[in-house]
Computed example of a mutant assay.
Amino acid sequence: MKRYKFCQSCGFPMKKDVKGGGSEKDGTKSLKFCSMCYGNGEFLTPPKIDTAKKMQKYCIQEMKKDGINGLFAWLATRSIPKLERWKQYYPCQFINRVNRNYMEIQQIIDWLLEGDVSIQYQVWRDLLDVDNKQIQARIAFEGWGVKFLSKRHMDGHWGDGFYQPKWISTHYTLLDLRNLYLQPDHAMVKETIEMVLQNHLADDGGIRLGPSTSQHSDVCVNGMFLNYASYFNTPGEKLESIVDSILNEKMPDGGFNCRTTRSGAKHSSLHSTISVLEGFLNFTGKDTTTKRTKF
C-alpha cells in the first residue's frame, strides 16, 4: 500500500506527526491520513468540514491559534484541493489553477527576497511576519542604504543643502533612508536631523527650506520631516514647534494643503494630508511625554 508523505486530508507532513499517522479500525496505522484528521477508521474533523474550501479555512484558523503567520498558513493550505480526500470534488482545471496561484505567490516572494537588503527586510517583516533585526542592520552597509549614506558631505548635508537640489537634497535623502528602514539609532542620520533643527527653523516653528519660507514653512515638508525625525528617535520636545506649525495650517475640511502659505488653497490636498498623517503616526507612536501627543 502506498505511503504518503503528506496527510491526504490536511496536507500536514506525515513524518512530523507525533503519532506516526492516524489509525484504522483494526488499530493499524493509516498511511494516508495524519492523527489530527483520522482515527479509528473515521475522520476526526468536524462534520461541517465537508469541502476542500472549508478544510482550508479550518486549517488556517487552527494554524493561527498555534502562532503560525497567516501568510504561511495560507500558502501551506493551497494544495488541499488536490489531496485524495478532496480532489474527487474538484475538476483538474480548478486544481491546476490553485497550484499555479500558489507557485506565482511563492515565486514573487522568492523574487523579492533576491532584491536589495531593505526590500528583504520589509518582505520578512510585512509579508512573512518576522522582524529580522540582523537583516535590518545590514541596510547601512549594503545596497541602496550604503549608497545613500556615502553621498553625505562633511557639512552633514546631502546635495547642496536641506532642500537643494530638491530630489537629492538632505530632506529627501533622509526620507528615503527612513523608507528603507535604516536602523533608527543611526548616529550619522541623527546628527544631521539635530543640525537641521538647530539651523533651519522658520518663524512659524516649521522647517525653513530657503528665504521664501523663512516666515511661513511648507506643511508637506513639515509632515515629512516629522515622519523621519520621529522614526530616527528625535526627542518629542524638539519636534513640538513643528507639530504646532502643522496644526496651525489645518483647513476647514480637516485636511492640509502646502499651497495655503503660497498662492492660497480652497481645499485640502491628498498628498499634503497623507504626508502630515504619516508624520503624526510616527510622532504619536513614540514613547514621549510631550503634551503634543494628545492633540
Rank of each mutant, 00 (worst) to 15 (best):
D185L: 00
G206T: 08
Q198Y: 09
M195V: 02
N179I: 00
E194C: 07
R178D: 01
S212P: 08
L182M: 11
I207T: 08
M195C: 05
H200T: 03
G210K: 06
Q183R: 12
M188R: 05
M188K: 11
L175T: 12
P211R: 13
R178C: 03
L209Y: 06
G206Y: 04
D204Q: 00
Y181Q: 14
N179T: 00
M188E: 11
Q183N: 09
N199Q: 14
D185T: 00
L177H: 06
M195R: 10
I193P: 01
I207D: 09
D204P: 01
P184K: 04
G210A: 09
R178S: 05
A202S: 15
D176R: 15
H200R: 01
L197Y: 04
S212E: 12
V196R: 12
H200S: 02
H186Q: 08
Y181M: 14
Q198H: 11
V189Q: 03
S212I: 11
S214R: 12
G210S: 13
G210Y: 10
L174G: 04
A202R: 11
D185Y: 00
L197D: 00
H200N: 08
V196W: 07
T192H: 03
D204K: 01
Q198P: 07
Y181N: 13
R178W: 04
D185W: 00
T213R: 15
T192V: 06
L174K: 04
T213P: 08
V189M: 04
V189T: 05
I193E: 02
Q183I: 11
D203A: 14
G206I: 01
S214P: 03
V196I: 15
A187G: 08
H186D: 03
P211M: 13
Q198N: 12
G206C: 02
D176W: 10
E194I: 02
D203M: 15
L197K: 05
V189L: 07
R208F: 08
T173A: 09
D204R: 00
M188D: 11
L197R: 03
L182H: 05
S212L: 12
N199I: 06
T213S: 15
E194T: 04
L201D: 05
L175F: 10
L182P: 06
P211D: 13
S214D: 06
Y181D: 09
Y181C: 13
I207M: 13
D185K: 00
G206P: 02
V196Y: 05
A202Y: 07
L182N: 07
D203K: 15
T173L: 10
Q183T: 10
D203F: 10
E191G: 11
P211L: 10
L201P: 07
T213A: 13
Y181E: 13
H200Y: 03
D185E: 03
N199T: 14
L197F: 06
D204C: 05
T213K: 14
L201R: 15
D176N: 14
K190H: 00
R178Y: 07
T173N: 15
